Amino acid sequence: MTSRLTARELTLAYEDRTVVHELDLAIPDGKVTVIVGPNACGKSTTLRALGRLLKPAGGAVLLDGEELAKLPTKRIARSIGLLPQTPVAPEAITVADLVSRGRQPHQAWWKQWSEEDERAVSDAMERTDVAALADRSVDALSGGQRQRVWIAMALAQETDLLLLDEPTTYLDISHQVEVLDLVRRLNRLRGRTVVLVLHDLNQAARYANHLVAMKAGRVVAEGPPGEIVTEELVRDVFGLTSVVVPDPVTGSPLVVPGAPWRADADEERDESLSKPLRG
């Protein structure tokens, strides 16, 4: 397995609280990798470090064998596109202007806005269904619309590596599927290497080529979803009793949670507790 982006003995911390512990991770080239795990397990923190938004407390992130922290910012921006979990847009900026900022890594004093830049921006806006919003202020959009605009900006950057932290946040189910289908098309048709953090384990199993399960700042398991998503893994990582069956559409693992709460079950329990003990 070849990998341009790797982490070696990566330790990440916020002040004196260590979140990720000596993590080793290799992102497979040309694949869709999805990182999953319970809240506060370190998955988003790991993604931030892979995009150089967070300086390691120990170990290193490597791009093409070179330490990410020592590379020029513009070189990284031409190789790695990153959509963080809660991006903030400049006040009153329009959709078209925000998406156009994805082209900044390709600009230089001798190379200003070009037809190639125009094509990349138009293509990104069409693919995320925000072209009709081009002249609207980002501040005036719904949460789902804003999320699609941010994704368009990341796509306009046209990097070989694309990191997306919970890109389906704020999106209804139809737009979630559209975004994840878009990720798959970018990977299959254009060879993009994509890393996503997702909360939904079933979506992760459906769209990932390579799945990374984290718990308490460490990798518990990684590999093809069909090999690692088991009832034991779901119980160990998420503390959830489940049944894992084949997805009827894709054949990927589908996690069905255990029996839900029932009012009659509580009534049965209460009745059993109220019965006198027999000595």
Results as ranks from 00 to 15, higher is better:
Pro246Glu: 07
Glu271Trp: 12
Thr193His: 00
Thr168Asn: 00
Pro276Glu: 12
Glu231Asn: 09
Arg269Trp: 15
Gln157Val: 09
Arg262Pro: 12
Pro260Asn: 10
Ala213Glu: 05
Val245Trp: 07
Pro167Arg: 01
Ser174Tyr: 14
Ala204Glu: 10
Val195Ala: 05
Asp247Ser: 10
Ala152Ile: 02
Val249Ile: 14
Ser252Gln: 14
Leu180Glu: 00
Val245Asp: 09
Ala263Glu: 15
Ala152Phe: 00
Val194Gly: 05
Asp172His: 08
Leu171Trp: 03
Val212Cys: 06
Val212Lys: 03
Glu158Met: 11
Ile151Cys: 04
Gln176Leu: 02
Thr159Met: 10
Leu161Glu: 07
Tyr207Glu: 08
Asp181Pro: 06
Pro225Met: 03
Asn202His: 05
Asp200Ile: 06
Val234Ala: 02
Tyr207Pro: 09
Val256Ser: 04
Glu232Gln: 15
Glu268Leu: 15
Glu267Thr: 13
Leu211Ile: 06
Val229Trp: 02
Val197Lys: 04
Phe238Met: 04
Asp181Phe: 09
Ile151Ser: 02
Leu161Ala: 05
His210Ser: 05
Lys275His: 14
Ala221Lys: 11
Val229Asn: 01
Asp264Lys: 14
Asp264Ser: 15
Ala152Thr: 08
Thr193Glu: 01
Glu166Met: 08
Arg269Cys: 12
Leu155Asn: 06
Val183Gln: 04
Val195Pro: 02
Val255Met: 01
Ala154Trp: 03
Glu267Pro: 10
His175Asn: 13
Ser242Leu: 03
Ser252Ala: 15
Leu211Ala: 02
Val220Cys: 10
Glu232Val: 12
Gln147Thr: 03
Gly239Phe: 01
Met214Trp: 01
Asp181Arg: 12
Thr193Gln: 04
Val177Cys: 07
Ser242Gly: 06
His175Glu: 10
Ser142Thr: 08
Tyr207Gln: 10
Ser272Thr: 15
Gln147Leu: 04
Arg206Tyr: 07
Asp165Trp: 01
Gln147Pro: 04
Ser174Gly: 12
Leu162Val: 12
Glu227Arg: 11
Glu158Cys: 11
Glu158Pro: 08
Trp150Lys: 02
Asn187His: 07
Lys215Trp: 08
